[in-house]
Computed example of a mutant assay.
Amino acid sequence: MNTNILITRPEPENALSCAFVRQCGWTPVPLPMMSITPLNSPEQQAAIRSQVFCLDEFQFVFFVSKNAARLALEYIDECWPMAPINTQWIGIGAGTTELLKHGGLPAISNPGNTTEQLLEWLKPVNMRHSKVLIVRGQGGRPALADGLEAKGAKVTYLELYQRSEPSYTAQDLLFLDPFELIWATSAEGVENLTKLAQQHNVDIFHRPILVPSERVRRLSAELGWQKVICSNGADDQSLYLATKDLLGRT
């Protein structure tokens, strides 16, 4: 049976997930719920390059998303003919880590998919006085930095992009293809979708919505979503397995 799935990732991940969904035999309905814009003014790029040239000063570099990894790899390739060898590269989530590996960095990750699981995984690691760089977008969650600083690390941010809420009209929603369930991969994406549906009086809150973590599941329920399923990961494979399980039960 064909299933239409609303894909809410930002681009370019949205197009990649849509292609994956088609390979699974389902029909994707793209509706990005977040826009990613690289910081690209001359002043911003100069400041970023200055930080990237200092990568060898950090014992640990964390990448919080695929967008952070993708943009950072471009700067690293430009600034470092060979990446620093005494730095531990860590991606949050399987997709981010695989992207880093594909880009030539020997990245590792914890078995889980959330910041909280990553911090739990790092409990045995002595990070006191370690210099840590967190690669992210502007204004991200402070949970990772707070947790690392509690371990005695000195944390610096490298911010490469800004997130914004996309603008859709009632007509955009009217002509959207029908869908039976939703893939939502971040709390901000769920919040933006909720606001959009409420703004245009679109009743989709009874549709199953797959979210990446228990934190986002709780938030979604508080926002009024009636059937929230935790996929235990924001990567396509985790969402695929959760979708297969859901469809097998319906």
Rank of each mutant, 00 (worst) to 15 (best):
N2K: 15
N4C: 14
N4R: 14
I5M: 01
E13K: 14
A15F: 11
G25S: 13
P30I: 06
L31I: 00
P32V: 06
M34N: 03
S35C: 10
I36R: 02
N40T: 13
A46T: 14
I48H: 06
S50Y: 10
Q59I: 06
F62T: 09
S65L: 10
L71F: 05
Y75W: 04
I76E: 03
I76C: 09
E78K: 11
G93T: 00
A94D: 08
G95S: 12
T96V: 09
T97Q: 10
L100V: 11
N113W: 04
E116A: 06
L118M: 07
L118I: 07
E120N: 06
K123N: 15
M127W: 05
K131L: 03
I134E: 09
Q138C: 06
L144G: 04
D146I: 08
E149S: 14
K154Q: 15
V155S: 15
Y157Q: 08
E165C: 11
D172S: 07
L176Q: 04
E180P: 00
I182V: 05
I182N: 06
A184F: 08
T185G: 03
S186V: 03
S186E: 01
G189T: 09
V190T: 03
N192F: 09
Q198L: 09
N201I: 01
D203T: 07
P208E: 07
P212L: 07
E214H: 08
R217L: 15
S231F: 14
L239P: 05
L241P: 01
